[in-house]
Structures are given as structure tokens and as C-alpha cells.
Design a protein around this nucleic acid. Structure first.
Length: 556
RNA sequence: GCGCCUUUAGCUCAGCAGGAUAGAGCAACGGCCUUCUAAGCCGUCGGUCAGAGGUUCGAAUCCUCUAAGGCGCGCCA
């Protein structure tokens, strides 16, 4: 707990004590104390709506309750300067904010770890995201999912959760057969031999590239080979090539995974049969029309689902159920899946499966990433993997820039539909809010450099009471909010809240910067204290940007 | 037809599980660099929070209905 949290906790405690002492409510009736940060400074540093919430139990007017509460409030223990009743019955606290300067040494000392908390109490959470089929390039939607997923994981980890990031590799099933046939066709075509693409083939540029590469490397070696042997080779080669590329692309996007989980391994380890056995044992399975069904309608789905098709093969759902069972068996208390909006209809059956396996359906959370629509030359671009005309994640990063792309996706809540105007993002890239935040960081770096040149340093300074102007107090308050901002973003699975925080902090800093000068040889003590303040801002900004995978440049 | 998502300033979006006069950015307009980075700051303009009911001290926020747009509803993945 930092100073800010301590003060808040103390305030809440005193409010509670005052309510009880005034006899406004019994211990059982007492609602949780809600402390708000008033938007308008005129309403104090903190305010509580306690008086309004007690109108029912106390059977009195809110203002009267507020007066009684204040009369019984022990003011001596907290750094309170003034208490006022305002509006319909708000109790506003005006603080002596000098205690906030205690934050500075705390942040300087914590460095990279500032913002961390034990909010999550080490809860084991598994986050599965991207999980794109290895059959083509990552496109816009994957990029959004990757940015949101990675940011969420960072935020969860910082807030004290034990996070595992996983990518489920769909390396079994039809789409991989189609991949093999597509690679085969492109290989023949690269050699000038006419060969048709399979009906559900993958038409992406990357597959054409594989074909060319194979033709260059191996010539016509595979043309007259046994068909099955050739198929197996192309399948294996295509898969490896695609996976390597996916990993590289994600790495370039600053997105990493702890576990790459292979669907094929579920077959090999007998995990699918094991999962089916559990479902059967629990009475959720029946046979009909030569297929094996999951009676998911009993668990909230709108249709029963086929698990084993007439031809004996599994549907997509079956290994996925086995994978989710495996996740739970590994001891994760919560599973978060980040899916594209086109898969949202899949949620009820997966939740049904979790329940059918004997777990709590609430353990599975699904975050839906809404569609991204790309606009270029004022026209909406269609995204289709099949035709291969989709804009890839790589294209996007090349055009817009890595930091801007990450920030842009992180900025919006995942469940809003998103229009991405490429022309705007490229032509006005300097207007992107990411630069606003990075600029604040670079400015601070510049001040620190100047300080070093002038021989002014905050090393050894222990008294920061010189930090006391209005702008400085605002900065300190903002700095103090950081751990809570992270905890809240984690709790609500809303990483975009972090960009709000970043913007606020950068804005508060820019405002301070324009109002007050940090380095002043005539006021050495104040300069040193301000230098330390500014350094704290830099640390916090950098940590916040790191959460969303954005760099913090020293110069711009 | 059913389900999920969205609807807030001219445009793109925030709005912290119900709070005080609904906020930013861009766009428009007016100021601020002999001083640590003007990719910045300060100000002005701009709103029937899609619409209608309901819940209560109090609703952009919660509930119901309606409208508009998007996405899903396979023995595809």
C-alpha cells in the first residue's frame, strides 16, 4: 500500500467509525464506504456519498445525516484540513496534501515495479489469445486481439495475478489438409506446371511464397513423388513455415506466449478420448444419425452439438473441449479466452462443456474483440482470408508504425466496433495520442539530461516538501492512482483503461511543464525536489507504456 | 426469427459498477517560444447521451420495450 492508499483506507475507516458512533446505522446495515475523486477540485480531494446512502436506514434527510456524521468524525488521525457538506448531501474532504510527497522516494525506489500490487493474490489465470490458424498471415483482427490480449496479460501480471499466456495451434483437421494442398498447388505453379488450388484453399501471398521457395530449393524433386508422401511433406513444411512466421510476426509486435499448445498433441496424448469419456460418464452424450452428440442444450446452448461426425472424425469443438479440460486440470482458476466477434456464438457451447466436465462455467470468461474495419481512400476494405486480399498485421505495422499500432488498438475497449482509417493513421501519424505520451517521456529525459549537465541531481535528497504547488500536487495525485488504475483494469479485464491513465498523466505533466520550470540554479533545493518528481513521472509513464507494449523514447 | 455487440459534440472515442455543471483528441477560431523539446500549453465554439417507459434522493450508467447498424445461428474452423 502506498501513501495514497493508506490515506484512503484511513479515511474510510474513520467514516465508518463516525457512522457507528453517531448511531446512524448498525454494523450490519453499514454499506461499503465509497470514496470518490471529485471531478471538480472545488469539491475537495475526496468525497463520500455516505449520507445519501444512509437515508433509508437512518430515516433522516441526507444533510442532517452528514452533519451528525461530521460531528462524530475523528479528524485528528487523517491529514484533513476541512470537511464540507455540499450538493444533495456529499461530504467533501479537503486534504493537507503534503503527505503526497512521500510518494516520490517510493516510486524512485520501486522503479520498474512501481504500479505493481497484490490485488490478484496470485490467482492462476490462463489467457488464450490470437490462436489464429497457421494457414496464412495474421490480419487486422488478429492484430487487435494480440494487442488487447498482450496488454491484458501485462496488466493482470502487474496486478498480482499468476498469468499464463497461451496460443492454441490448430495444427490438426481440415484446414491443415487444405494448407498442404494449397502449398502443393503453389509449388507446381511455381514450376510452371498447371495445378488447381483446392476448393477451400488458401490464396494468400505467403503460400505463393512457400511454393516459390520450395521450387527454388528443391526443383522438381516432389513432382513425381508418391502422392501421399508428397502430401505429408507439404503439410509438415507448410505448418512449420507458417508457425515460424506467426511467431516472428507476433514477436515483432511485442507479443509473447508462455505456451504454444498443439491441437495435434491432444490426439497423440489421448486427451480427446479422455475428455469424451468424462462427458459420457456425466451423461452428456448420445448417439444419433450415426454421429455422437453433446447434449449442450441442457446447459444453456440453443442446439446440441456434434462431437464425432458420421465419418468418425471430430468436429472442431471436440479437441477444444479436451484443451479446456487440460487447462483446468493444470490448476487455473480462471480461463480467459479472447475471441473474434465471429466466434461469439461459440461461447454457450464452450461454457456448457466446462460445466459438463464438472467445473464451474463461470471459470471461463470470453472477451470478444469486435471487428476492425479498414478504410483506405475513403473506401471500406473487405477482409477475406480466402481471397488473400486482407491487409496483414505486417502491412499495418509497416504503414502505421509499431508503437502507434499497439497504442491505437489498446486505446479502445475491445467490445466496440472499430473503424481504422489507414490514410488518417498514416498521414496524421503525428497526431496519434501515442506521441503525446511519448513526448512527455522524452521531455522528462531532456530535463534530466540538462540537470546532469548543470550538475543538479536529486541523489541524496530526502525532503521533498518543496513540491507543493497546485500543478505538482495534481501530478502527485495522478502518480498515486497508478496501482489502483492497474488493479481496476485487471479486475474488469479492460486494458484500455491504462491508455486513459497514460493520457491523463501525460496531460497533467505537460500542463505542469508549461507552468513551472524544473531547473533553476537560484532555487537549488526546489530544483532537486522537482527533478525527483519529474523522474517519478518518467518511471510511471514508462511502466504504463510498457503495459501496452509501447516504447518510451528518451528523445523525439 | 433467435442470440451477442454497438448507438454520447461535425468526425474518432472516454465516461472509473448510479453521483455534483457529461469529457478528451481531431476539425474550427483566438492567444503563448530571449527560459529544461511548441509532437506542447491556455482559452472559445460545439450535446435532446438513438427514442419511449420504469427503478430512486439522483440514471449516459441498472431493467423493459422500440429503432438503426454490425456479427453469429454447420456433422466448417
Amino acid at each position: 500500500m502506498n501513501v495514497v492508499e493508506q490515506v484512503q483506507a484511513k479515511l474510510k475507516e474513520e467514516i465508518k467509525a463516525a457512522v457507528l458512533k453517531a448511531g446512524l446505522a448498525t454494523e450490519e446495515q453499514l454499506p461499503d464506504v465509497i470514496l470518490e475523486l471529485p471531478k471538480d477540485k472545488a469539491n475537495g480531494d475526496y468525497s463520500t456519498n455516505m449520507a445519501m446512502r444512509l437515508t433509508k436506514t437512518a430515516k433522516k434527510a441526507p444533510k442532517m445525516i452528514a452533519e451528525e456524521l461530521i460531528a462524530n468524525f475523528n479528524q485528528s488521525k487523517a491529514s484533513i484540513e476541512k470537511i464540507e457538506i455540499a450538493g444533495p448531501g456529499f461530504i467533501n474532504f479537503y486534504m493537507n496534501n503534503s503527505y503526497l510527497t512521500e510518494l516520490i522516494p517510493v516510486i524512485l525506489d520501486a522503479k520498474d515495479s512501481y504500479g505493481a500490487s497484490d490485488f490478484g493474490k496470485g490467482e492462476k489465470i490462463q489467457v488464450e489469445f490470437v490462436s489464429a490458424n497457421p494457414t496464412g498471415d495474421l490480419h487486422l483482427g488478429h492484430a487487435r486481439g494480440a494487442a488487447v490480449g498482450d496488454s491484458l496479460c501485462n496488466v493482470l501480471a502487474k496486478a498480482g495475478y499468476d498469468v499464463s499466456r497461451e496460443y492454441y495451434i490448430n495444427d490438426a483437421g481440415n484446414q491443415i489438409n487444405n494448407l498442404a494442398l494449397s502449398v502443393e498447388a503453389r509449388y507446381f505453379q511455381a514450376l510452371g506446371i498447371d495445378k488447381e488450388m483446392p476448393a477451400d484453399g488458401y490464396h494468400g501471398e505467403d503460400i505463393i511464397g512457400i511454393g516459390k521457395k520450395l521450387a527454388e530449393e528443391f526443383g522438381d524433386k516432389y513432382v513425381n513423388m508418391d502422392e501421399q508422401e508428397r502430401f505429408d511433406f507439404f503439410r509438415e513444411y507448410g505448418l512449420k513455415y507458417e508457425m515460424a512466421k506467426l511467431k516472428q510476426d507476433l514477436e515483432n509486435f511485442r507479443v509473447g506466449f508462455d505456451v504454444w499448445y498443439s491441437e495435434t498433441s491432444l490426439y497423440q496424448d489421448g486427451k480427446i478420448d479422455a475428455a469424451l469419456a468424462v462427458l459420457k460418464e456425466n451423461g452428456h452424450i448420445y448417439e444419433q444419425d450415426g454421429a455422437t452428440w453433446f447434449r449442450s442444450t441442457e446447459l444453456g446452448d440453443d442446439k446440441d452439438r456434434v462431437l464425432i461426425k458420421q465419418d468418425g472424425s471430430y468436429t472442431y469443438l471436440t479437441p477444444d473441449i479436451a484443451y479446456h479440460r487440460n487447462k483446468l486440470e493444470r490448476g487455473f482458476e480462471t480461463l480467459i479466452n479472447i475471441w473474434g466477434a465471429d466466434h461469439h456464438g461459440y461461447i454457450p457451447r464452450m461454457k456448457a462443456a466446462i460445466e459438463a466436465l464438472g467445473y464451474n462455467r463461470e471459470q471461463l470468461e470470453v472477451e470478444i474483440i469486435q471487428l476492425v474495419h479498414l478504410y483506405k481512400n475513403g473506401e471500406k476494405m473487405k477482409m477475406s482470408k480466402r481471397t488473400g486480399k486482407a491487409v496483414t498485421m505486417r502491412d499495418l505495422i509497416d504503414e502505421v508504425g509499431l508503437d502507434a499500432t499497439r497504442y491505437f488498438f489498446a486505446m479502445r475497449s475491445a467490445d466496440t466496433h472499430m473503424d481504422f482509417d489507414l490514410d488518417l493513421a498514416v498521414s496524421q501519424s503525428n497526431d496519434n495520442p501515442v506521441y503525446y505520451a511519448q513526448y512527455a517521456h522524452a521531455r522528462i529525459s531532456s530535463i534530466l539530461r540538462s540537470g546532469a549537465e548543470q550538475g543538479i541531481s536529486f541523489e541524496g535528497v530526502t525532503d521533498f516538501t518543496a513540491v507543493s504547488s497546485e500543478k505538482e500536487i495534481e501530478l502527485l495525485k495522478k502518480l498515486g492512482e497508478f496501482p489502483q488504475a492497474i488493479a481496476e483494469a485487471a479486475d474488469k479485464r479492460m486494458p484500455h483503461r491504462i491508455t486513459n491513465y497514460i493520457f491523463d498523466l501525460a496531460s497533467t505533466f505537460h500542463s505542469f511543464y508549461n507552468a513551472e520550470k524544473v531547473l533553476d540554479a537560484d532555487q537549488l533545493d526546489r530544483s532537486k525536489a522537482r527533478l525527483a518528481l519529474v523522474k517519478s513521472v518518467q518511471i510511471t509513464l514508462k511502466n504504463a507504456l510498457a503495459l501496452i507494449g509501447v516504447s518510451a523514447p528518451e528523445k523525439m
